Computed example of a mutant assay.
Amino acid sequence: MSRLPMIAFDQATGATADIYAKIKKSVGRVPNAYAALATHDPAALGAMLQADAALSAGTLSRQDQEIVKLVISEAAACDYCVAAHTMVGKLSGLSPEAMRAARAGEPTGDAKRDALVRFVRNIAHNPGTVSDEEYQAIVAAGYDARQLVDIALAVAVITFTNVFNRINDTDVDFPAVA
């Protein structure tokens, strides 16, 4: 059970009600992670959603965005985000096999995507500056400077939700992932 209480959609008022309405209009429902964030700090959720909107308007494909989010979520052991982004990844056209392989750091069958997985796994597992070798590998795979900025933004956005969901132990309201 989630640690932080959540205001139900029909009981929300003020900034929480406003952000609930926007999320419901966009997604069709208010996922538990968003509800917990909106209950306790709607401005924080708003900032995260704005960053995600900037990412969506950026240069990474939706599939690459979901690969980054899955790799980081797997490294963080965030079952909530792994479940959520597996569902969104499927909607973006990623196969279950490619998502499982990316989460495990195994080949996906797409050389450019495999380079992205290696790069993001390196970021997740090796703190500090990205080595020249890692930088050259991701550039050689075809990722440009703007896409590298978007990769960093995707890592930042998902890291925030990973950390929050680990603090809250958010109840997973997406299909479970093996």
Rank of each mutant, 00 (worst) to 15 (best):
L91A: 15
D114V: 05
Q50S: 14
E97W: 13
G14M: 04
A152E: 11
P42F: 01
I138N: 10
V71W: 04
V177E: 04
R29T: 11
K69Q: 15
R166F: 01
I72E: 11
V139W: 06
I23H: 02
A137V: 03
I138L: 11
G128Q: 08
D10F: 06
P31H: 07
V157F: 03
I23K: 00
A178C: 03
A57T: 01
A104W: 06
R29W: 03
G93P: 13
L55C: 06
N162K: 05
T129E: 09
L60T: 11
D52L: 07
M87L: 14
D171R: 01
V27M: 12
A53N: 11
K22D: 12
I138A: 08
G142S: 08
R118G: 11
V172Q: 00
Q136S: 15
N165V: 03
A137P: 08
T129L: 15
V117N: 03
A21Q: 07
A176Q: 06
H85S: 01
M87V: 08
G46Y: 02
R103K: 14
R62N: 15
D10A: 13
L148R: 12
V130P: 09
A141T: 02
F164N: 07
Y135M: 06
H40M: 10
D52T: 10
L55V: 03
V155T: 11
G89N: 02
D171Y: 00
D64E: 15
P175W: 10
T16K: 00
D171V: 01
E134P: 07
Q63M: 01
A8G: 13
A15D: 12
D144V: 00
N162V: 02
A84P: 00
C81M: 13
L60W: 06
L45D: 03
K25I: 08
A21V: 01
M99W: 06
P5K: 15
L94I: 10
Q65E: 13
Q136E: 12
I72Q: 06
L49C: 07
V139Y: 00
S2V: 00
V172I: 15
R103N: 02
T16G: 07
F174R: 00
P107W: 08
F9L: 11
E134M: 14
A101T: 08
E106S: 04
D18P: 00
R121V: 10
A44H: 02
G46M: 05
A51G: 09
E133C: 05
K22S: 10
A47G: 13
V82D: 07
V82N: 01
A8T: 11
Y135R: 14
N165M: 00
E134L: 09
D132P: 07
Q11P: 01
T86W: 11
N32H: 10
L70P: 06
G128K: 01
S61Y: 10
V139N: 06
R3S: 10
E66D: 09
V139R: 15
G109C: 05
S61D: 15
R103E: 05
A152K: 06
G128I: 08
A124H: 08
K90E: 05
D10L: 12
T108V: 07
L45G: 00
I19A: 08
P42S: 13
